[in-house]
Each structure stands twice: as C-alpha cells, then as structure tokens.
C-alpha cells in the first residue's frame, strides 16, 4: 500500500517527508503526529514536506499541513513545502487556501538549499 505510506528520511538535521499521492484523512492526521515525534527524536531543525506526487489538496489536507508547519515552528524547526504540482497550485489558490506562513520550493534540492541558507543565518545570528 504505497498510497498510505508516509516516508520519513533524515538527512543531517533535516527531515525529508514524502507524502503519498492520494492519502486518506487518517494518513494525513497520522503524518502530523509522525513528523512531530520524528522532529523531536532526531533533534531536527528543518522539515521538507515533499508533496510532488500529491494529486489533490483539499481544505482538510491544507489545514493539517499548515498546522504541522506551525507546530514544527513552535518546536524551533523550519518547514518548506516542496514540489506542489501546477494544477494543484491553481486549484488550491482558487479554493482559497494560501499557505501564507509556509515557505515553498520548486523541488527538494531547492528546499534543501533554502533550509541550509536559513539555518546558517540563524546560526550566524545566534
């Protein structure tokens, strides 16, 4: 059941989470929990949510993702939403969901670059 599988990979202090293409609500809810505990367990500083295979983003999915990003921020982490499909971006925007507080990137490579830069800035200022 690859569709229900959320893969979580740790690269240095970044967690790369790949969201399945058509997840049911339970999978989406569990993803939030899974991510938060993984962040804590690995003392990760960055999170990349790779949604490049996701075909539909509805308000439930959007809410859960936005919440997760906020929760990760409260835990001191920075999140990037990566690889949203063009058709999904149009639809999501029209639906009225803007992910205003969320960083976005064209693909995982660019998300990694963004996180490295941002985390470096943080390190500099600290």
């Amino acid at each position: 059941m690859p569709n229900g599988t959320v893969s979580v990979i740790k690269i240095r202090d970044i967690l790369l989470v790949t969201v399945p293409s058509d997840p049911d609500d339970i999978t989406v809810s569990e993803l939030q929990e899974q991510v938060l505990y993984a962040m804590e367990r690995h003392s990760a500083k960055g999170l990349i949510l790779d949604i490049s295979t996701v075909e539909t983003v509805d308000s439930f999915f959007a809410r859960t993702i936005s919440e997760t990003v906020k929760m990760v921020a409260l835990m001191g982490g920075l999140s990037v939403l990566s690889g949203m499909r063009a058709c999904v971006a149009v639809t999501t925007t029209q639906l009225g969901l803007t992910f205003e507080q969320t960083l976005t990137a064209l693909d995982v490579d660019r998300a990694m670059d963004m996180l490295s830069v941002a985390m470096d800035d943080k390190g500099d200022s600290a």
Partner: peptide, 8 residues
C-alpha cells in the same frame, strides 16, 4: 499566489 505555492 499560485506561483508562490509552487516555490517560485
């Protein structure tokens, strides 16, 4: 907005 969601 949609362009921003793509990461651009």
């Amino acid at each position: 907005t949609a362009v921003r969601l793509l990461g651009a």
